[in-house]
């Protein structure tokens, strides 16, 4: 599986190189919504938990559980309902890659 995806990636890359360089990817600016409480890039040492560097799958599962009400929260069960599952996946991916 891994080889297949790596190859697919290479092929995609080669195709792009042959033509015009791809446009710069837009940044998912909405990730910064989380910075207000959880610190810039998800880094904080406070009563509010840090989310930078947490496991992607954990962040995604937790946000989805807040959203569907299966996990209790003080605030996050209300805020998570504002995001689509696709956006939750982007948030989880983004914060999992912060240090």
């Amino acid at each position: 599986m891994k080889t297949f995806f790596a190859l697919a990636g290479l092929l995609g890359c080669a195709g792009a190189l042959a033509a015009e360089p791809p446009p710069a990817a837009p940044f998912p600016y909405f990730v910064a919504n989380c910075f207000n409480c959880h610190g810039t890039e998800g880094n904080t040492k406070s009563a509010i938990p840090a989310i930078a560097g947490r496991e992607r799958a954990y962040l995604e599962a937790t946000l989805k559980a807040f959203k569907d009400g299966s996990k209790q929260a003080t605030i996050m069960h209300q805020l998570a309902k504002g995001y689509t599952d696709e956006e939750i996946a982007v948030l989880a991916d983004y914060f999992s890659r912060q240090r």
């Binding site: 910075f35 207000n36 409480c37 959880h38 610190g39 810039t40 904080t44 406070s46 009563a47 509010i48 003080t74 605030i75």
Partner: peptide, 18 residues
Amino acid sequence: SVEEGLFTRAWARNIWSD
């Protein structure tokens, strides 16, 4: 709740920093 009281102070520090 006391928990939200603690969150309030954490929120203030974090947003000032942000």
